[in-house]
Amino acid sequence: MDKIVIAAASMVGEEDVRMARLGTRFGRLDLASQLALVAVEALGVNFDLLPRELIGICLAARAGSLATDFDFWRGRDNAGGPSPTLFAYTLPSSAIGEIAIRHRLTGPNLCLTGEGSIIPEACDLLRRGEAQACLCVFYNVVTPAIAGLINSPAAALAGAILLRLGGNGVRELGENDRDIEKMCRVLCPKDLAS
């Protein structure tokens, strides 16, 4: 059986979102979806060279959409009521839709919240033939408003890894590669505090 290869990896933070030029619609997205989109963009993958219907997207949303949930609910008393646009982003998986739309990817999807690892799930999609490549994406958005609620430090970062069966890439996927955030930090060292 072909080895699974890390074809590309990226790591981004809020500054990358501010610098991004991804069209007029980008500004309407919530921060989690913006980070995820920018992370995929930073992979530098030419999706024209891949079968779009066989590219899976596996998303890890550690704190889910809680930051956006908080913003949506805080706006419930606004004139005109809560924002319909923001409501669409109160699902942890919204970033999957944004990535799929931008790159026209029609493969299977998965989103795990909390501590679940998406790497074995992406490998499963590849080994079962459900996908020929899999975009693994994580985001972690914890605003100061929710940090206390979930006892977590504030954060705004995302990373992405493209996994493929065989071929060339950054390196082969190892047996201990389970934590996508850790993998992205190692493969793409970056000072996100700046």
Binding site: E53, A88, E98, A100, I101, T106, G107, P108, N109
Partner: peptide, 11 residues
């Protein structure tokens, strides 16, 4: 089982 994405619209 099978899954897919429309890659068309968010909502």
């Amino acid at each position: 089982w099978g899954g897919s994405n429309d890659a068309n619209h968010l909502t």
